[in-house]
Design a protein around this nucleic acid. Structure first.
Lengths: 237, 237
DNA sequence: CAGGAAAGTATTGTTAACAATCATTGTCAA
DNA sequence: TTGACAATGATTGTTAACAATACTTTCCTG
C-alpha cells in the first residue's frame, strides 16, 4: 500500500533522499512527529538504512521548507511554529487555496471527480473506524489532490508545504483530539467541483480554511517531544 | 551597498550557503545567468571561495526551488522552463500576488509607503539611465517588497521564487530587449497602497501580471548558454 | 574522408576519517 | 546540599581521498 516494500531483493533497498523527505512529511502530517522532536542523524540513518549524506541532504530540504529547524552544531528538530508563523501560514492558505479550488473546479474531469469521491469515502471510513492517523493523512491529502486536479505543480508544492505546516500548528496549538478537517466541508467542495461552480468552490474552501483556523488557540502552547526511533521504525520493515 | 565587503579582516570571509543561494538568485533575476548555463562545482567553488560541500548544498536548495536543474552525474544547469511550467508559474502568480497586494494595502505604514516610493524612484532612474540589469533587479524586487510590507514570510518566499522563475521564463520566451515590468503600473499599485484601497491594489496587480504574461510568446524558444565564471567573478572582489 | 570505438581526462557522487562543538556526568568546594 | 567547574562521551560539521560516470580526443577501419 505504501510502495516501498522490498520487492525481490534486486532493487528497492536503495532509497533516495526525496523518498526520505516524503516519509518525514507524511509522519509530520499524521502528527507522529510532534514539534520539537529531535531528528538525530544516526537515528535517521538507522531508520531508513542510508548513509549520513542522504540524511543530511534530506534534512536540509526539510529545513528549507520550514518543516524542521536546523540548529547550529545542535542538530535537527521538528519545527515548533510560533503563533506568528501560524498566522502567516493560515493567511497564505486563505490567499492561495480558494484559487486552487477555483481552478480545480474549472478543470476537473469526470475521472478526477470519481477519484476524489473515492478519496472522500476513504476519509469517512477512517473517521468512522477511528483510525485517527489515516484520517488526518487523507484529510490533508485532499487539499493536495485539489492542486493536482488544478494541474499546477507549483501550487501543488506550496499546498503540500502549507498543509504539513498546518499539522505542526495544530500539534502546537490545537486541542489534543481534533483532526484537521471536517469531512462534510470536503464534500461540499467536491459538489462545487462536480458542478464546475468555480465561485462556490472558492467560497467553500475559504469557509473551510476559516473553520480550521478556528480550531486552534494561538494563546496557549502545548509542549511535546517524542521518541523518534519507534515512530519511524514501526512502518519501516 | 551589497553587504558583503570585507570588514576588518576578522569575519566576513566565511560565506554560508544561503548567501550563495541569494547571489545566484540575484544573478538569475538580472538575467546574467540565462537558462541552460552550466553551473559546475569547481567554477562555483572558485567564484565564491568556498568548499565543494557548501556549493553542493546551495545547488540542492536551488534545485528544490526549480531554479537549477540537477542532472544525474552530469551536473547542475540553470533551469530551462518549459512552456507548461511557464503557464504554471504565471497562474500561481495571478493566484497569489493580487492577495499579497491586498494585504499589503491593508498593512502599509507611512514608512512603508515612503520606502516603496524611493524604490520606484530608483527603478525609474535605472530605466532612464539605461542600466538594464539594475532595472530588472529592482523591478523584480518591487514584488518581493510588497510581500514584506504584507508582513508574511511564507508569501515572501513564494513570491521570490516566482519572480526568479519569471526571469528565466522571460529569458526563454521573451523578446530580447524587454524588461520584467512597466514602471507606471508599479506606480499605480503604490497609489492604491497609499489609499489603503485593497480591492484596487489587487486589481492593479492582476492587470500588471497579465501584462507581463503578454510579453512572452510561449511558442518559440530561444536557446542560450554563457560563461559562468566571468558573470559571477565580476562582482565578487 | 567519415564514422565509430577506445583510451584518457575531467567532473560528479560517495565514503570514511578527522576536527569541532555541545551535552552529560561526576567531582570538588563553599 | 548546592553551585560551579572540569572531564568524558556523543553528535554534528568539514575535509580529503576514492570510486563512478560522463565527456573529449585520438586512432583505427571502412
Amino acid at each position: 500500500m505504501h510502495g516501498l516494500q522490498h520487492q525481490g531483493g534486486e532493487v528497492a533497498d536503495q532509497i533516495d533522499e526525496e523518498a526520505i523527505v516524503d516519509r518525514i512529511f507524511e509522519a509530520v502530517i499524521e502528527q507522529r512527529l510532534p514539534p520539537g522532536t529531535k531528528l538525530s542523524e544516526a537515528a535517521l540513518c538507522e531508520a531508513f538504512g542510508v548513509g549520513r549524506m542522504r540524511v543530511r541532504r534530506a534534512l536540509l530540504l526539510l529545513a528549507s521548507r520550514d518543516i524542521v529547524d536546523l540548529q547550529n552544531n545542535r542538530g535537527a528538530y521538528v519545527s515548533s511554529p510560533t503563533s506568528n508563523q501560524a498566522l502567516e501560514v493560515f493567511e497564505a492558505r486563505c490567499a492561495i487555496e480558494p484559487n486552487v479550488a477555483r481552478i480545480a473546479a474549472a478543470r476537473a474531469t469526470k475521472s478526477d471527480i470519481a477519484d476524489l469521491a473515492k478519496h472522500l469515502k476513504l476519509e469517512a471510513e477512517a473517521h468512522h473506524v477511528g483510525n485517527r492517523r489515516q484520517a488526518i493523512r487523507l484529510s490533508g491529502q485532499f487539499h493536495v489532490k485539489l492542486a493536482q486536479i488544478a494541474r499546477n505543480n507549483v501550487m501543488e508544492r506550496m499546498v503540500k508545504e502549507l498543509v504539513t505546516r498546518t499539522s505542526l500548528i495544530i500539534g502546537m496549538f490545537g486541542a489534543p483530539g481534533t483532526s484537521n478537517c471536517h469531512d462534510d466541508e470536503h464534500q461540499q467542495i467536491l459538489s462545487a467541483l462536480e458542478r464546475h461552480d468555480e465561485d462556490n468552490a472558492a467560497l467553500q474552501m475559504e469557509k473551510h480554511l476559516k473553520h480550521i483556523e478556528g480550531q486552534v488557540d494561538l494563546k496557549k502552547k502545548r509542549k511535546t517531544g517524542v521518541n523518534l526511533f519507534e515512530v519511524l521504525h514501526g512502518e519501516q520493515d
